[in-house]
Nucleic acid binder design. Structure first.
Lengths: 342, 342
DNA sequence: GTGAAAGCGCTAACAA
DNA sequence: TTGTTAGCGCTTTCAC
């Protein structure tokens, strides 16, 4: 790789002039410098440039699972914002492991100008440590009031759960179940509490045996749905608190030959990729995932520009998208669904 | 941020000792150094470290579309391999734009130790330029024999197309259509040619009006399928040469109320995320996408270790996964599908 | 406007 | 083993 010195010598100017020219300054031998750059195929060493200027021109993004389409879209939103500034995205995968995440945070903190974190499901203590001193952080799907340089973006989980509950109640369901995520996670807790609260508010508190605490995974959704169907009184409607659990639940229903929505109505939280191709298409609580990402990026960008600005916590709206997976309940609770007790 | 000097002073040793200690060397005051590191919350400046050692500890990955689950899984494979070496992944999105890709390549080339490129659909001249002199590159889904430091991984596109064709023929279809990707792309060309060739080899060359050249997009697949149905003799089976076009085609069939597989059999190339939840589940040519990514990463890793090793070009296998979207053709070509001519 | 010179934080020779 | 020294390639004062 050619260095700036070589370019300077070839163009008959000083390295300083080349540097000035490259950062948009006015210099004399501009044409000759450009020529030299081209001839030598010169590209500035970002390491040196960064070391000198104190900027990495790079932000870190840690997701729990790259292959979750939700996170992919989030990353898309983030990347799009920073691409405009010529700031790159360092993407890392915590694989839902808090320990791994902690290591990644530590590593990325010294390679980037700031971090956008989508925390894994289990609570991790990283952020409370001094690991992040001085590194701007934006949290997605989680809020944290400690640390002056930690902003956050979440969606209105409570409202989403409320919409789901109201929708099912308004259809006339009385046997409504919920497959919740872990209460240790912010979205898990919020959706769980708000859903149950809403049912109570409408005078239809959920039966304890219709409440499942799961883990936001497809497998978890699958098992939870199985055990719900095996209840004495199976639910006529189920709210699945995230996309993966919804997928798991749908798989189980398909395996058991349960007809949606005739036998069981389903509302998911977060849209599925091919949602509208499913049979029936899925009723979901939807959020603007790309916007969630771009908002996080905007927050980080703003803090990069103004490190000592006050904390910002954004809450983005959600909406109910009614499609084919919800309908009125059948006359009575469908006892026959309980295959095991036949 | 604390620097190594400060750590050294606090631990009562020289910076060199701290450096040695941090890279696993044996030193005396290890305990005191560790203590100082902790107290000062020291983290080495990767910029300085990289500048000095000449390594970025970072590879660049450019994908055409992050939100395509295929690429997400690919990135997962890549990230997993490099994570083991503590090498990070800089992810950029070319958004299918060759010009944008060229700019990204130039930028990433000066920020990373090597690049993994998934070229956009349209052919781009970037790689033939001197832009990449000295930067190791691994191409996915495309081969290029120029440039000694350019390796590649592809899947056996021809064999995949062949499997699809044979499958449909063996079911008894005689009116077989294909929605191909652009012939300017390697996978587009390979799949297209092999599919048509196989039909011919079995004495059933495709009708010209049953061949569509599209663009690997959902919209393209949608339009192509629409025009196929509008043909005088609509096909009884269609091969969609990639995942997005398959999605588009499925949408159209659903919109028009065409029953799969009774009225039209569908084979896709590359599995869809919720493929098995679709009704019917989709018959596809599948490849090990994660492995595709990890193989690309392995190639890059190997070249990073041995820059002057010879070029390697891998071809990974594909398989036919028969699910519910293909069956025997109805007695005759289904004229009634042609809604427009009714 | 231009060049000389210092130095960002680290690592790798070299000496001790 | 340890410390001293030089310098990776760039930007940015500072004089001119």
């Amino acid at each position: 790789m050619a260095t700036m010195r070589e370019v300077a010598r070839r163009a008959g100017v000083s390295p300083a002039s080349v540097s000035r020219h490259m950062s948009g300054g006015k210099v004399g031998g501009a044409a000759r410098i450009d020529a030299a750059i081209k001839e030598l195929n010169y590209r500035p060493n970002q390491l040196a440039r960064g070391l000198r200027s104190g900027r990495h021109s790079c932000v870190g993004v840690i997701v729990p699972d790259i292959t979750n389409p939700l996170f992919a879209e989030l990353v898309d939103g983030i990347e799009s914002v920073f691409a405009a500034d010529n700031i790159r995205v360092l993407l890392a995968n915590s694989k839902e492991d808090p320990v791994r995440e902690a290591a990644l945070v530590a590593d990325l903190a010294s390679r980037t100008d700031g971090l956008i974190l989508i925390p894994p499901i289990e609570t991790d203590p990283v952020l409370d440590q001094r690991a992040l001193v001085g590194v701007p952080v934006v949290l997605v799907d989680r809020v944290l009031n400690t640390g002056a340089n930690v902003d956050s973006v979440v969606v209105d989980n409570r409202h989403g759960a409320q919409l789901a509950a109201k929708h099912l109640i308004s259809l006339g369901h009385t046997e409504i179940a919920v497959i919740s995520g872990p209460l240790s996670s912010f979205p898990g807790r919020e959706r769980h509490e708000a859903f149950l609260q809403t049912l109570s508010d409408f005078g239809q508190p959920a039966r304890p045996e219709h409440v499942r605490l799961s883990d936001f995974s497809a497998k978890g959704g699958n098992k939870s749905m199985a055990s719900l169907l095996d209840e004495q009184i199976p639910p006529t409607a189920v709210f699945c608190a995230n996309n993966l659990m919804t997928i798991g639940a749908l798989r189980l229903l398909k395996d058991r030959g349960v007809v949606i929505p005739d036998e069981v109505s389903i509302v998911g939280f977060d849209d599925l990729d091919l949602s509208e191709l499913l049979n029936p298409p899925l009723t979901v609580i939807n959020r603007a995932t790309f916007t969630l990402g771009s908002s996080a990026a905007d927050l980080l960008r703003a803090r990069l520009a103004t490190p000592d600005r006050e904390q910002h916590h954004l809450t983005l709206p959600v909406e109910l998208v009614v499609r084919g997976s919800t309908t009125k309940p059948a006359r009575k609770p469908l006892k026959h669904l309980n295959r095991n007790s036949e």
